Simulated scan of single mutants.
Amino acid sequence: MTAQRVCIIWNPSKTTRRDLESGLDQATSAAGSDFEAIWFETSEDDAGQGVTAQALAAGADLLVVAGGDGTVRAVAERLAEADTGTELAIVPLGTGNLLARNLGVPLNDIPGALNRALGGEARAIDVGWLEIDLAGGPERHAFAVMAGFGLDAHMITETDDDLKDKVGWLAYVESMGRALAASDPSRSGSPRTDRRTTGTACTRCWSATAACSRAASTCCPTPTPPTVSSTCSS
């Protein structure tokens, strides 16, 4: 990768800029890269789409997204919408990191992931799109590998973030139990609709579960053309 301007989008709930800068220094020394780095931080109000638009406006040659699956999905969504040759790289820092796993990106290794981002060859991947009807109007969202809804989305909504930070993916086992209990009609004698599986909660689930399987083509009868480049594969 010969990027001149690298924009790093990072989730502050997953890491610190200091750790990323340290890893970037190590990766730069290993790859012998020369570039300008610009930093963008996500927030509760902006999971990644907004800062991605800012990074593209700043002329990014390469977007490096450091965070979990939700952050990666949000950045990939905005990038896929843009008519640009900007490439995408991942520093996986979440619980599942499933897109990164499928692409062979080093896990729990910030310098290693950044070294791949700066020195790897770009690889095109498919992105799927889904339109959903919400109380506030229809929304269109991208997914990098798999889309989940119903019980799957309810499980993600139920997941305790503090518990996930402590025990990792095992937190999903605990939340699945509560999601199953909430959807079991035998407990109330009639089918049950839970408020957490409808409306804005579905949007929240998208932010958490976007990249979850092997290929977007397994979820879409007609895969979209390759629209996102990734420097995360060897």
Results as ranks from 00 to 15, higher is better:
Phe149Gly: 07
Gly150Met: 05
Asp160His: 04
Glu131Thr: 09
Trp129Arg: 00
Lys164His: 09
Lys166Val: 10
Ile132Leu: 15
Phe143Ile: 00
Val173Met: 03
Ala135Tyr: 06
Pro138Ser: 10
Val145Ala: 15
Pro138Arg: 04
Ala147Cys: 11
Ala142Met: 00
Asp162Val: 08
Asp162Ser: 08
Lys166His: 06
Ala181Val: 15
Gly148Phe: 03
Val145Arg: 12
Thr157Ile: 14
Glu174Arg: 06
Ser175Thr: 01
Ala142His: 01
Asp165Trp: 07
Ala142Arg: 04
Tyr172Asp: 10
Val145Glu: 05
Ile132Asn: 12
Asp162Phe: 07
Thr159Asp: 00
Pro138Asn: 03
Ala144Trp: 00
Arg178Asn: 08
Ala144His: 01
Arg140Tyr: 05
Leu130Gln: 06
Glu139His: 09
His141Lys: 13
Thr157Leu: 12
Ala179Gln: 03
Ile132Glu: 14
Gly177Ala: 10
Asp161Thr: 11
Trp169Leu: 10
Glu158Cys: 12
Pro138Asp: 12
Met146Phe: 03
Met146Asp: 11
Asp133His: 10
Pro138Gln: 13
Leu130Asn: 04
Gly148Val: 05
Pro138Gly: 10
Ala171Tyr: 03
Val167Gln: 02
Glu174Ser: 09
Leu163Trp: 04
Trp129Val: 06
Gly177Tyr: 04
Met176Cys: 07
Thr159Ile: 10
Ile156Arg: 05
Asp152Arg: 04
His154Met: 07
Leu170Lys: 14
Arg140Met: 12
Phe149Met: 10
Leu163Val: 05
Met146Cys: 13
Asp165Gln: 14
Glu174Asn: 08
Thr157Trp: 13
Asp162Tyr: 04
Ala142Tyr: 02
Gly148Met: 12
